[in-house]
Amino acid sequence: MVTQVARKRWERILVGARIAAVLLACVFPFIVMLSVSLKPPGDETTYPPSLIPRRITFKNYADLFNPRLFPFMRYFQNSMVVALAAASLAIIVAVPGAYAFARLKFAGRELVQRGILSAYMFSGVLLVVPYYRAVIRLQEALSVQLVDTKLVLVLTYLAFTLPVSLYMLGNYFRTIPAEIEESAMIDGCTRTGVIWRVIIPLSGPALVAVFIYAFMIAWNEYLFALVFLISPEKLTLPRGLAELFNTQHYIWGRMMAASLLTAVPVVSLFLALERFMTAGLTVGGVKE
């Protein structure tokens, strides 16, 4: 009996150590970023390097909020609007589509299901040129301003994340027992009603997953934001980061501070919504 307890404790310690090791490996570069962000210029390139700064300064962070040096809040706002819009639309557009995949029979379903992933087979770097061309033509045809707007980015990011969203949601919807929907329909619900009243309430984890995924893609995307955004007041955070990193007068501390601040929203979003993601199916598990 004593050895049983001791073994359990030893196992728990081992597991704890392994978890700690994994967490350390994941977070270590961020610790380095934090350390560098608190160092004054010159200290970050000294040898031997020290993780704990010899001198601490908050000037790097303060500089980021000085509009003469770096309009952080403006970039943040732009990124936030674009990412929230893209993430919300991702759910609105993908849920009906995924339901169609999961529950409805229609001609061409197999083709679209298999084909949707082929959207990813062309590298973004090379697609940007014909896409930009297409947008310019569309802009001229419709006499509508598209380039240098948040709208074009939102729609672009939405389109990027749709295949995965449809896929994730479709798989998830299939695991919801059909009996629930059938009984709802017998009670007089239409298909769209079913989506609204049955599927969505039961899909919390998947919806959160899609939201976070789309938000993250939109938040961090650089190439298309580079090509489409022109005016300084429209730029997003990734473009701001590039500005800090590629300038001749780069300051390591500022670069790292900006990096951390840019990572914070997405990580916080995930932490806040995490419990919804792992709530698991509330409607039974896998039968038989």
Binding site: N220, Y222, P238
Partner: peptide
Amino acid sequence: ARGIVLMPYVAPLISLVFAWRYMFHPVY
């Protein structure tokens, strides 16, 4: 813990690249 595990995936790429380059720099 789960949030921390996610950090490499959700942080902006350019930041991570520079952090790695800094950590692996031949001099400092």
